[in-house]
Design a protein around this nucleic acid. Structure first.
Lengths: 192, 192
DNA sequence: TTTTGTAATTGACCACGGTCATTTTTTCCA
DNA sequence: TGGAAAAAATGACCGTGGTCAATTACAAAA
């Protein structure tokens, strides 16, 4: 029961990914067509699906990679200590998540893995989000009557709410940042 | 510039809707195929799209109707006054929203209308959710340092977070109701 | 080098949502 | 009642994601 992986495989895979990134670079995630990718990569359509379960799987990988990079960046900075500082520190992550409606929808769709075996980069980022924020909260100027973990899950919930409203015509008046700050202030530092 | 609507139109539309409801009754929302609906209704495929912009438009209508019915039911009951009571009162709405992953995803996708002109039943229900809960909160045993509207938006955010986690393998341990109650208690009655 | 089993690739094909030029039905006025 | 204009319905056709039996390339054993 061997399962040697040929060098050819890695090359083909790399070509597919590169082609996909090119297409996205030019037209955004939303506009990506599998046909375009395989043509740019110079392979047959079937080959694509031998390398990725479906189109979404490739998208999850590519978007997940970018998301991980956002987290890396955010973790470089100093730990924020107040609600507005936290909102500001998370900005790169939120900015990418709302860069395209397609991106936001896909991230939300993959935020919770439906089976343990298929936990992907995006689902892992959602866990990382909570860990990251919970870490900040431990020493931040916020309420401490409930656990940092629960508090961090709340931050996530409010961030998602704010991001959803960003794509909503009914709530254009308020900006994403303003809304998130208001939420976080009420959640993290109540009974002022 | 007349635009008479023929009786035939209404009949065809009614047949399409009835056929769709039959299909859904049997196999759920997820499994609905336009082909099946038009065949059951005895019309051509093109006719479907003369009556509904696309498949999602029909789904929004049908799911929206059910959602409105849930709200009507919830509004019949007495106003809850504590966090657990609020979670409990909202149960019929949340139950329907999480009855099928497809239903949840579609509702989320239509929760924010992208253009003022296309506000549908689901987007209206999201406004109604906030109004309903804010009304309860005015006289409930909860914090009053922030407006009932903001508080209600938070309830919505936590409910969505809880529902998302319901579909997530990583968070199966805790039940939806338990999680929501914990969130709402922390959000509505802090600094106990 | 040849053989042979398996990994990788291919492209014709399918499923399903959606379009549109054409045809059929209805309406309404002379 | 005839016939023209509007409304509705039709179904062949398209775009795009995805499948799979057949073919080709590879690498290890003979």
């Amino acid at each position: 029961m061997q399962k040697t992986v040929q060098k050819r495989t890695l090359k083909t895979r790399a070509r597919l990914i590169e082609a996909a990134e090119d297409v996205i670079e030019r037209n955004g995630y939303q506009a990506l067509r599998v046909e375009d990718v395989v043509q740019a990569a110079g392979v047959a359509k079937g080959t694509f699906f031998a390398h990725f379960r479906d189109k979404d799987a490739l998208m999850e990988m590519l978007i997940g990679e970018r998301l991980v990079a956002c987290f890396d960046q955010v973790e470089q900075g100093p730990a924020p200590r107040t609600a507005p500082e936290i909102a500001d520190a998370l900005r790169p992550i939120h900015a990418f998540m709302t860069s395209e409606r397609y991106v936001f929808d896909l991230i939300i769709r993959y935020s919770g893995a439906t089976a343990i075996t298929e936990i992907g980069p995006i689902a892992r980022c959602f866990e990382r989000y909570v860990r990251l924020v919970a870490g900040w909260l431990e020493t931040a100027k916020v309420r401490h009557d409930i656990s940092p973990d629960l508090l961090a899950e709340g931050v996530q919930a409010f961030a998602i709410q704010s991001m959803s409203l960003k794509f909503c015509a009914l709530h254009e008046a308020e900006s994403f940042s303003d809304r998130l700050e208001i939420y976080l202030d009420a959640w993290l530092t109540p009974a002022a």
